[in-house]
Write a protein that binds this DNA or RNA. Structure first.
Length: 471
RNA sequence: GGCGCCGUCGCCAAGUGGUAAGGCAGAGGUCUGCAAAACCUCCAUCCCCGGUUCAAAUCCGGGCGGCGCCUCCA
């Protein structure tokens, strides 16, 4: 498959460096607040990447997603809440798992957190290695990375060494640093702040060191295959990760850098916790929208383009998904025995076209187009009586094949399993209505249908009988 | 000030040199007790101006507009 690599700013063929397993690290959440849908745009996009690597490209994936559970924000927020850092951050890790599950994001192989002892030890070892190799220095109890020792610094972000805006850095530590561009590896803790002492003195990790250390601890020898995250992490976070990791190991850190563009709010602003203009997954659900529709919206724009989130786009997504579900429901109703070679070929063509789109740097909008072209052709063939039971199974298989990557049909199906009215009641009312229609009492029949519609259930009559679905 | 991205139908969104996918919404028709669903038909020449080319939404130059990064951030 082809994947865009931020390091080279172009699409490149992707194959894992070693064997058939992709070793991938994605920067996760800083758990001082509930993640917003902008965060989840990134996580859904990376879920699409993971699923494409597995189900389309046929690789195994070992993926790590971290939780940053120690930094100024988590420390301050936990203090304000009067809780321990661990207890406070636990809550938002749980919330992340709930929201991720609601959006159908596959669990990954490991979710390390920065404050786990084995990770802190790995960080300290890396700091020590950087000191030993002359890339680090101490000042006021903290350890800093000396950027002047890394001639390649700025390669990922394409910053020239002097290109940093003069005076833009208002950093309280700057007088402790030899160079304003240097960054902290291990930070001396202020009184009352959490501190750990595993060999480089008491303190806590700098932001960047955790990802470098955990990636290499959990994925093995560098370079790892893919390192991913939101575009805002390119600089300084990922740039600094490269500097640290390569300074400590002497080997390239990651082969591919994948960055997901931002989700913007209606007005066009970036959604950001520090701006306070955020929307969470549960906010969306509270508005009566389904998680399946949100996932659909998040994957309906290519991951390297900004996505402007609107309530209208969510409503459009609900309708689009309904069209797919209606098609699937019709396929379920096919009873005629036999099979039609043309339908078998159509299903195979759709699978291949879908795979080609996903292999092309995750072209999810194009892939959705393939799905809807299949929907149209299936409906037309159904109308023409050209679909037999054997074909229906194969066509359903084609949709399922696509959904192993999209993950949106499965989500919708799960939602349908919990209708707002008990299924046996719905079925009793449908039977009542059928009786009324049988005696041409259309007033009663329509009243039952309108009543159900008002309670969130739509009825559709066809020659095969009456079907219900959620509105 | 520096670096970068983007501007395609009313809305969302692919396509990035060979004559505009798909979804939502809309119009007309078929089917239906009525609806819904479905099908058929219709609905754009790609922000503007130049240029390169047999050929450009796609390449180049110049505008205009939007956004991001350079600072914590998915």
């Amino acid at each position: 498959m082809r994947l865009y690599n931020t390091l080279t700013r172009r699409q490149e063929p992707f194959v894992p460096a070693r064997g058939g397993t992709v070793r991938m690290y994605a920067c996760g959440l800083t758990v001082y607040a509930r993640g917003h849908i902008g965060n989840f745009r990134t996580f859904v996009a990376l879920d699409l990447l993971r699923r494409t690597l597995r189900h389309v490209a046929g690789f195994d994936v070992r993926q790590i997603v971290n939780f940053t559970d120690v930094d100024d924000k988590t420390i301050n927020a936990s203090r304000a809440a009067g809780e321990s850092l661990r207890a406070y951050t636990d809550r938002y890790i749980t919330a992340f798992r709930e929201d991720a599950a609601a959006l159908g994001i596959e669990p990954v192989e490991a979710y390390p957190r920065a404050t786990d002892e084995e990770n802190l030890r790995a960080m300290v070892e890396m700091v020590a290695a950087l000191e030993a190799r002359g890339h680090a220095y101490r000042s006021d109890g903290s350890v800093y990375f000396r950027i002047a020792t890394d001639p390649d610094y700025g390669r990922l972000a394409r910053l020239d060494h002097e290109g940093i805006m003069p005076g833009a850095r208002i950093d309280s530590d700057q007088y402790a640093k030899h160079d304003a561009r240097d960054f902290v590896l291990w930070k001396a803790s202020a009184p009352g702040e959490p501190a750990w002492d595993f060999g480089v003195g008491p303190g806590r990790p700098g932001w960047h060191i955790e990802c470098s250390a955990m990636a290499l601890r959990l994925l093995g020898e560098p370079p790892i295959d893919i390192h991913a995250g939101g575009v805002d992490l390119i600089f300084p976070h990922h740039e600094n990760e490269i500097a640290q990791s390569e300074g400590a190991t002497g080997a390239p850190f990651a082969r591919f850098w994948v960055h997901v563009e931002h989700l913007l709010l209606d007005k066009g602003d970036k959604m950001s916790k520090s701006e306070g203009n955020i929307l969470t997954v549960s906010d969306v659900l509270a508005r009566g929208r389904r998680a399946s529709a949100l996932r659909y919206v998040l994957l309906s724009t290519h991951y390297r383009k900004q996505l402007r989130f609107t309530w209208d786009s969510l409503a459009q997504a609900e309708e689009a998904l309904t069209r797919i579900m209606d098609c699937l429901a019709r396929l379920d109703g096919v009873t005629a025995a036999g099979s039609n070679p043309a339908m078998q070929a159509r299903a195979a063509a759709a699978r291949e076209a879908f795979a080609a789109m996903m292999r092309s740097d995750l072209n999810t909008p194009g892939a959705l187009g393939v799905v809807f072209e299949l929907v149209r052709d299936v409906h037309a063939a159904l109308d023409a009586g050209e679909v037999a039971a054997g074909d229906a199974a194969v066509l359903r298989g084609a949709f399922d094949h696509c959904d192993r990557v999209l993950g949106v049909i499965a989500l919708r199906r799960a939602e349908e399993e919990a209708p707002p009215i008990p299924v046996d009641e719905i079925e009793r009312l449908i039977a009542e209505r059928r009786a009324a229609r049988g005696r041409r009492d259309f007033a009663t029949a329509d009243r039952i249908r309108d009543d159900l519609q008002g309670r969130g259930i739509a009825l559709e009559d066809s020659a095969a009988g009456t079907r219900w679905k959620r509105v």
